[in-house]
Amino acid sequence: MARSYAVTFTFVSSRVLNLWPRYWSHLGDTLSAVGVIAFTLVSLLVVDIGLNWRELTTRRA
């Protein structure tokens, strides 16, 4: 469920950023698409780190 929220956040935030064309108009279509893909991957990575934080930070003997 958290990953679904992360992907939804990507779509919502990209729509909000489209309201300010000065940030996106100079990039072109290719770089805008790469930016959305990178934002999606980063949001999924943050969610996965958050979900697995305890396993990542505990020591194993």
Rank of each mutant, 00 (worst) to 15 (best):
H26G: 10
W24V: 06
R59N: 02
P21S: 01
A2L: 09
N52A: 04
L44A: 08
V16C: 01
S25K: 12
L45G: 10
L31F: 13
I37H: 13
F11N: 10
F11W: 12
V12W: 03
N18E: 14
W24T: 12
D48G: 02
T30A: 13
V34A: 10
R22S: 15
L41R: 07
A2F: 11
L41N: 07
T57R: 06
P21K: 01
W24E: 08
R15Q: 07
L41F: 06
H26W: 15
L19G: 04
A2D: 09
F39G: 10
G50D: 07
F11L: 14
V34T: 09
T10E: 12
F39I: 09
V12P: 01
T40R: 03
N18W: 11
V42M: 03
V7H: 03
L19H: 06
A33Q: 07
W24I: 11
V16G: 00
A33D: 12
L19K: 05
T40C: 10
L17A: 13
R60N: 00
V7Q: 03
W53Q: 05
F39A: 11
L17H: 02
V46D: 04
L45S: 06
L41Q: 12
V47N: 02
W53T: 05
G28Q: 06
D29F: 12
L27D: 13
N52F: 06
A38T: 06
L31R: 10
S4K: 11
G50R: 09
R3P: 04
V46Q: 08
R3M: 09
V16E: 00
M1G: 06
S32Q: 13
V36T: 02
V42T: 05
F9Y: 09
S25D: 15
S13T: 13
F11Q: 05
T40L: 15
L51A: 15
H26Y: 14
T10M: 15
P21C: 02
L56S: 03
R22C: 08
S43H: 04
V16M: 01
D48M: 04
S13G: 03
L41E: 12
R3E: 15
V42G: 13
L31E: 14
L41M: 07
R22F: 03
R3D: 14
F39V: 11
I37Q: 08
S4M: 13
I37W: 14
T30N: 14
V34N: 00
S14K: 02
D48V: 10
L31V: 13
N52H: 13
A61W: 01
W53F: 09
T8C: 13
E55L: 02
T58M: 05
S25T: 02
Y23Q: 03
V42C: 12
N18T: 04
L27H: 10
F9G: 04
L27A: 14
V46H: 08
S13L: 09
V16I: 15
V7S: 08
D48K: 02
E55F: 04
D48N: 12
A2S: 07
D48Q: 04
E55V: 07
L51E: 09
L31G: 07
A38P: 00
W24P: 01
R54I: 05
T30E: 10
L41D: 04
I49L: 11
I49S: 03
